[in-house]
Design a protein around this nucleic acid. Structure first.
Length: 408
RNA sequence: GAGGCCGUAGCUCAAUUGGUAGAGCGCCAGAUUGUGGAUCUGGUGGUUGUGGGUUCAAGUCCCAUCGACCUCC
């Protein structure tokens, strides 16, 4: 029994069907994993997640390290026992927080124009840019990253060694190398500089992982490909990371503001250099069209906050919504105030099976807590099961048809 | 009954000595991709209670009227 087996390949694209085996159960790929940053998929219980078909969830190292702290989680024998989830878990390495607390923070603030950031990065060092922007909470150096907690401002430091040691203590089934996610846009000089650093960190992450002897059960470690939107850097990164001996791979640094076409190019530039027998995870994606495009290009795993975040904000997936509206409708829209039918007649989730759109609309307008739960339930169900349908379509040989049906 | 005070957007309120009526919230719409249950971006919205008058010009000054509130008898 190997960690990952490919059971079927699409003959018209790079799409494939497989199974990942962990001590906490199997995962059928392609798979979408809901994000439970703080050891909880917001508003949902583990039973909810099982009911709607989730096979694996993502937890975040940065958040759990800061709160409740690794010690508390260790006392439960790891993240599974702590959150009452006995199926597989993947932990992020904290690398993304280097981005979201650091330079990426600038691109997320609409005030800072993209070209301004690009100019800054061309003209100044990262340290100089950070000095000019006191809101930045993280600073990267060759050895690791120093950051301030978003909770209390206290100073902390992550290195590849520290991140992996924390992840060993958290005890997820799949853990990630510590990387730097560069903002978009980044000039080539910075992207390359950061890439060398991420590669160095990948080696150190893997070495640290090999030293870990006291695993109660098997932990697999994935390396992360970076390289921004530069195809040659992506290829360089995939060759390097692909050659280190990781159990699987992530493609990172996407969905950070770049055009979708650039993201697809980044996937295409990376996949050919990654061992075809190992699973590939596209970090932080995502949108329904992106999932189709990525699976077609050989991606096996996805995680994204969008179904839960959008669910809490009333943006709900709908089988009859157009691609232009990203397959979603806004339940807060005026028309739903009086709709006695369920939100989506074609949906089999708990929410659509039991509640009218008008009731949902009311819950959202009244800021009732049940809105978060019913909305998240619906959205996660929608995405998880769409990916299951895609999996089946690959087995049936009609994946291109299904993709065309959705994306035309 | 007498005196006082106030009526401006759906709501709470702004608007210099008279000079193009604004804000917050709400409402409507959009954004949201390895999560700060957050945030951001637009948009709709008014015969300034009503009717007269003074003035080049009135939310603002004058008169009447309707309504709310306060005090006193």
């Amino acid at each position: 029994m190997s960690f990952f087996d490919i059971t079927h390949k699409d003959n018209r694209s790079s799409a494939r069907v497989g199974v990942i085996r962990t001590d906490h159960g199997d995962i059928e790929t392609p798979v979408f994993m809901p994000v439970g940053t703080q050891a909880t998929v917001k508003a949902l219980t583990p039973e909810d997640l099982l009911d709607l078909g989730a096979e694996i969830i993502l937890n975040n190292t940065y958040h759990l390290y800061l709160r409740p702290g690794t010690g508390v989680i260790e006392s439960f024998g790891g993240v599974h026992g702590f959150q009452h989830w006995s199926r597989p878990i993947l932990t992020d390495s904290g690398g993304f927080q280097v981005f979201s607390l650091g330079l990426g923070k600038l691109t997320k603030q609409r005030k800072v124009k993209h070209d301004l950031l690009a100019e800054s990065l061309a003209e100044f060092t990262v340290e100089e840019v950070a000095l000019k922007n006191p809101k930045i909470l993280a600073k990267v150096d060759e050895d690791g990253v120093t950051f301030r907690s978003h909770l209390d401002g206290s100073t902390h430091r992550f290195t590849p060694e520290i991140s992996l040691e924390i992840q060993h203590k958290l005890g997820a089934d799949i853990i990630l190398a510590f990387d730097e996610c560069v903002p978009y846009p980044s000039n080539r000089k910075y992207a390359l500089e950061s890439l060398e650093r991420t590669h160095n960190w990948a080696k150190r992450s893997l070495e640290t992982h090999k030293l870990n002897k006291n695993q109660p059960y098997k932990q697999f470690v994935f390396g992360i490909v970076q390289g921004s939107v530069y195809p040659d850097l992506r290829a360089k990164s995939a060759r390097f990371i692909g050659g280190l001996g990781f159990d699987g791979f992530c493609i990172g640094g996407v969905s950070v503001g770049e055009p979708k076409s650039e993201m697809y190019k980044a996937i295409e530039s990376s996949v050919p250099f990654l061992d075809a027998c190992k699973p590939r995870h596209l970090l932080g994606v995502g949108d329904i069209d992106d999932i189709f495009e990525a699976i077609e290009r050989g991606v096996d795993m996805f995680d994204c906050v969008s179904p839960t975040r959008l669910g809490r904000n009333g943006s709900l997936y709908h089988s009859q919504a157009s691609r232009a509206s990203k397959f979603r409708v806004n339940i807060l829209g005026e028309g739903y105030k009086t709709q006695t039918d369920p939100l989506d007649p074609e949906c089999s989730c708990y929410t659509c099976a039991n509640y009218s759109a008008a009731y949902l609309s009311h819950l959202y307008r009244a800021d009732e807590l049940l809105a978060y739960r019913l909305g998240s339930l619906h959205n996660v169900h929608f995405i998880v099961n769409l990916v299951k349908k895609i999996r089946q379509s690959i087995l049936n040989g009609d994946f291109p048809l299904l993709k065309q049906k959705w994306l035309s």
